[in-house]
Simulated scan of single mutants.
Amino acid sequence: MKIRTELVAGTPVRFGVRSVGTPFAVTRDLAPLTSASFARIEPQHKRYCVVGGRVVSVLLESGLDQLFAPNSLLHQRLVTLMRSQTSRGRQRASVDVTTHRYQHFPLRSVQLDGAPWFLTADVTRVLGFSRTALHRSPHTRLWHHSGFTGARSLVHADGVRELVGKRMPLSHQFAIWFEADVMSCYDDTAVHAA
């Protein structure tokens, strides 16, 4: 989940989008901006999410009316920032997914920021690793796409090569196929852009 921090009336507030596409603001960050009690927020307007490795309370857009006057500048600014999170998610979702086939396994890829990224689940399945093999790898990122439920973990081509190296010589055939058939589809600048 990507978290973005914005200054609102001089206060840093963290914003994000839940896996179901709902934007939120971290409740604790909003506290200095209002004198209203957070206890009065109805349960359907708040959730709990993992932000920065910690479970925190977050406020959905529908709950802003309970803390801020609906037509105030502060309310409008918060709504704009929350909605911009959703539009960013939609921009990412418009990316085409390409499916390559290795034997009978699908290997889905997308091009983000000019570089090829592969679904981690597909890569680990093909190479016989558990899905946690790339946990905390610098070559992975989360991605939201309308064709999938929730966020998907992606791995950059460099992360794929790293895993292949751990399975040599068993994965030698895959390595040849990956470089010749898959990576040759991308220009050289895209391959090393991440």
Rank of each mutant, 00 (worst) to 15 (best):
F129C: 05
S137F: 02
A133N: 05
T22Q: 13
V20H: 11
H139C: 11
V182Q: 03
L78K: 04
S153I: 01
H75K: 08
A69E: 15
P106C: 05
T124Y: 01
A36H: 08
L134C: 03
M168Q: 14
G147V: 07
H45Y: 14
T132R: 12
Q85V: 11
R108E: 00
V164Y: 04
T86F: 08
P70A: 12
I3V: 15
R88G: 08
A36F: 04
Q173F: 09
V17A: 11
E6N: 12
F129R: 04
F129E: 03
S153K: 02
A157F: 02
H75R: 12
G16K: 07
L74R: 06
A121W: 02
A121F: 06
F178H: 02
T11M: 07
A180F: 10
K46N: 10
T98A: 11
L60W: 08
H145L: 02
T98K: 10
M1Y: 06
E6F: 12
M168S: 11
G16F: 07
H172I: 11
R90S: 09
S72H: 10
D96L: 12
R125K: 12
P23V: 07
V95M: 06
V13E: 00
L112R: 07
L134V: 03
S146D: 13
E61M: 11
D188V: 15
V51H: 05
S35R: 15
V191E: 05
L134I: 03
Q44W: 10
V126A: 02
I176T: 15
R77G: 00
V50P: 01
H172C: 07
Q111S: 11
A31Y: 13
V164I: 15
D65V: 15
S84K: 13
K166G: 03
A9D: 15
M168E: 12
P70E: 14
G16A: 09
F15A: 02
Y102I: 04
S37C: 08
A25W: 03
A194W: 12
V79N: 02
M168R: 15
H139T: 06
H104W: 08
D122S: 01
M183A: 03
L119Q: 01
L67T: 05
Q76S: 14
F24N: 00
M183W: 05
Q103T: 10
R47A: 13
D181S: 14
V79D: 00
L78D: 02
I176Q: 14
A157L: 06
F24P: 00
